[in-house]
Design a protein around this nucleic acid. Structure first.
Lengths: 204, 204, 204, 204
DNA sequence: AATGAATGAGCCTTCATTCAT
DNA sequence: TATGAATGAAGGCTCATTCAT
C-alpha cells in the first residue's frame, strides 16, 4: 500500500509534466487564435505566450493546423456541454429555444470571440483538399435533428424540411451572435428578439 | 477632320490594351478567390490564370488586398442589381420575401461560391487597419431597413427590434445558401422552406 | 544657295525634334538624381517628370546607367566652364585659389546638390567591374596639375608630391562644400576660411 | 553549488550557437559591403558567405539596413580605438597630426575599403527617414573640436572658424586615403605629405 | 519619333518546421 | 521533456527594359 501511495503521488504530480505544458499551449493558442486569427498566429507566438520554447509546441501537435483543429474541437465540446446542461425533457418549444439561446450567448460572453474564431477561420484551413465539414454545417445538422424531435413530439410545425430549416436556425443564431458581439448589442435584447423570431417561425 | 474620325475609329478597335487586361485579371481573380480563398491565391496565380505576366497585376491594383476588395465590391453590386430587378412595390410579405430569395439564390447559382468567398474572407483581410464593416453586417442592416418598411406598411409583425431581426434574417439566408451550395441541395426546396420560415416569423 | 537656305531652315527648326525631348529628359534626370539619388530614381520617373512617355527615355539612352553618366559628365563640363572663366594668367597664389573656390561655390549654389549627386552616386554604379575612375579622383589629378604649374612658376611650396596634395586639396574643398550645403553654412565664411587654409598650406 | 558550477562550465563550452553565427554574419557582411557596396549586397549573399541559411540573417538583424548601420558603427568604433591608442597629451602639433594620420592609415591598411564603404554608402541608405548625420560630417566635427583644443593651448593658428576647417581637414584626409587606396599609393608618402600639408596650414 | 502596356528576373522578408543539445 | 538556433521554400512586390502600336 505505502509503495502504491508513493507511486500514485509520483504519478499525480511531476511524472508526466506533458499535460501541464499542453494546457498552457492550449490556453495560449486559444487566446491568440481569438485575438489575431489563424493566419496571424505563429506557433512560435503560441509557445512564447505559453512561456515555453518554440520546439515544445511540436511535442504536442504535429503542426499548426492540428493545434487549430483541436481548438475548434474544444470549443465545440464546451458549447455542447453548455447546451446539454440546459436541456431538459418536457419543455415547451419556447422554453427550449430560449434555453438554448441562453446557453449559447452565455458561452459567447464568457468566452468572447471563441466561436467566431473557430467558425470564421475553419473554412480557410484545408491545405489542399479534405475540407472537413464546417462546424457551422454540423451545428446546422444538430438543429435539424432537434427540429425533427420537436415535430415528432407535436411541439413544432411539421411543414419544413428539417435539414434546411436547421441550417436557417443556426444561421440566424450565428449572425445575430457575431454581429451582436461586434456591435456591442445588449445580450438580453438579442436573446429575446431571436427567441420570439424562432418561436414564431417554428410554432405549430 | 475625317482623318481624325477615321483614326479614332481605328484606335477604338484594337483599343488601348489596358482595360482588356484588367477584365482578364478580374475574371481570373474571381475564379481563384472563389476556388481557393484569399490566402491560397497569389497575385502571380491570378496573373498567370489571366494569361499575363505577374507585373501586370500591379498595373491594375496596388496590392493583393485591393484586388480582393474590388472583387467583394463587384459581387455586392451584382447581387444588389439582381435584388433591385426583382423588387416591386405593392407585394405581399410573402411575395416580397420569395422574390428576394429567388434573386439571391439565382445569383448564387449563376455565380457559384462568389458570395461565400466574398463574405468568408473579408473578415480576415484587415489584419490591422480599417476593418470595414463586414459585408454580412451591412446586408443585415439592409434587411433591418426592409423590415422597418414592412412594419410601417402594416405588412409585418411589429414586435421586433428591426436591427436584430434583420441580422437574423440575413443569417438564415446566408447559412442556408452556403450550406445548400456545399451540399448540393435543391434550390427550389431551399427557397420554399426558407420563404415559409421567414414568412411565419415575420407575418402579422 | 536658296536651296541650302531652305534646307538649313528645315534643319534648324523642326527637322529633328529629338534634341528637344532629349533636353527635357536631361533636365528631368538631373532634378531627380539630385533630389532622390540614383537608386531611387526610375527611368519612368524621369520620363514622366519630362512630360514624355516611358519609352522615350530609351530613345535617348540605352539604359539608366548611361543617363546618369551623361548627367555626371554634364556637371563636370559645366563646372570646368565656371573654372575656366575665372582662370587668368599672372595671379598670385591666393588670388588663384580664391578665384577657383569662388567658381566652385558659385556653381554649387546655382546648381544645388548637383556636384554631390554626381560624386556620391558614381561610386555605386558599376554594375560589375569597370569602375571608371571617380570624378573626385580626376579632379584631384587636376589640382595636382595646377599645383605643379604653381610650383614651376615659383608661386607655391615645392616640397610636396603634387598628386597626393592635389587629392588633399580636392578633398578639403569637397567636404567643406558638401557639409556646408547640408548644414547651411554661410558661403562667404567657407570660402574665406578655406582660402586661408589652402594658401597657408601651399604658400612658399 | 558545485553541480551548478560544473554545469555552467559545460554550458560555456559548446556555447549557445547564436553569438557564433552573429560574428560569422558580421564578418561576411563587412566583406561584401566592402567588395560590392550596399545595394549590390543581398542579405542572402551575406548569409551564404557566412555559411548559413538566409533566414539566420534575420535572427540577428531586423533588416538589411540595420545590418549595414551596425557595420558602419563597428567601423567607427574600431577607428576611434586606433585613434585613442595613439593619442597622448603634450605632443607638438606635428606629432599629434602625424600620430592621427598614422592611426587612420594603419586602420585603412589593415581593414582595406572599410572606411570607404562605410562612408560612401551611408548617405544612400536613408531613402526617406531619419537621415543620420553622415559619418564624415561627424568626424569633421571631431576635427573641429581637436582644432579648438590646439588653439586654446596655443599650439595652432587661431584665425580659423574651427568647424569649417575641421571639415577641410577631414576632407583632405578622407580623399587622400581613399584615392590612395584605389591607386595603390605608398602609405608612408601619403602620410608624410599630408602631415606636412596640414601642419603648414595649421601651424602658428 | 513617341508611347505606355506588358514583362519577369530579382529583391527583401516571413514563418512553419527540424534537430542538436 | 524541453529548447531555440537554424533553415529555405514561398510570398508580395518593384523596376529596368521591350515592343506593338
Amino acid at each position: 500500500m505505502s509503495t502504491t501511495t508513493v507511486k500514485s503521488l509520483d504519478d499525480a504530480r511531476p511524472a508526466r509534466r506533458k499535460p501541464e505544458s499542453l494546457s498552457k499551449i492550449k490556453r495560449a493558442a486559444r487566446k491568440l487564435f481569438v485575438e489575431r486569427g489563424y493566419h496571424a498566429t505563429r506557433p512560435q507566438d503560441i509557445a512564447r505566450e505559453a512561456g515555453l520554447g518554440h520546439g515544445t509546441f511540436y511535442l504536442h501537435y504535429p503542426d499548426k493546423r492540428a493545434c487549430f483543429l483541436a481548438f475548434v474541437d474544444d470549443a465545440r465540446e464546451e458549447l455542447d456541454e453548455y447546451l446539454r446542461a440546459r436541456r431538459q425533457p418536457g419543455l415547451t418549444l419556447e422554453e427550449m429555444i430560449a434555453g438554448a439561446l441562453y446557453a449559447i450567448f452565455e458561452y459567447s460572453e464568457s468566452h468572447p470571440g471563441v466561436l467566431n474564431a473557430a467558425m470564421t477561420d475553419e473554412a480557410i484551413i484545408d491545405a489542399e483538399g479534405v475540407a472537413a465539414k464546417p462546424l457551422l454545417d454540423r451545428w446546422g445538422l444538430d438543429w435539424g435533428q432537434t427540429l425533427r424531435e420537436l415535430v415528432a413530439d407535436g411541439r413544432a410545425f411539421s411543414g419544413y424540411d428539417s435539414e434546411i430549416v436547421g441550417q436557417a436556425i443556426l444561421g440566424a443564431i450565428h449572425q445575430t451572435a457575431s454581429e451582436g458581439g461586434r456591435s456591442g448589442r445588449n445580450r438580453e435584447a438579442v436573446v429575446k428578439n431571436l427567441t420570439r423570431f424562432l418561436v414564431r417561425a417554428l410554432a405549430l
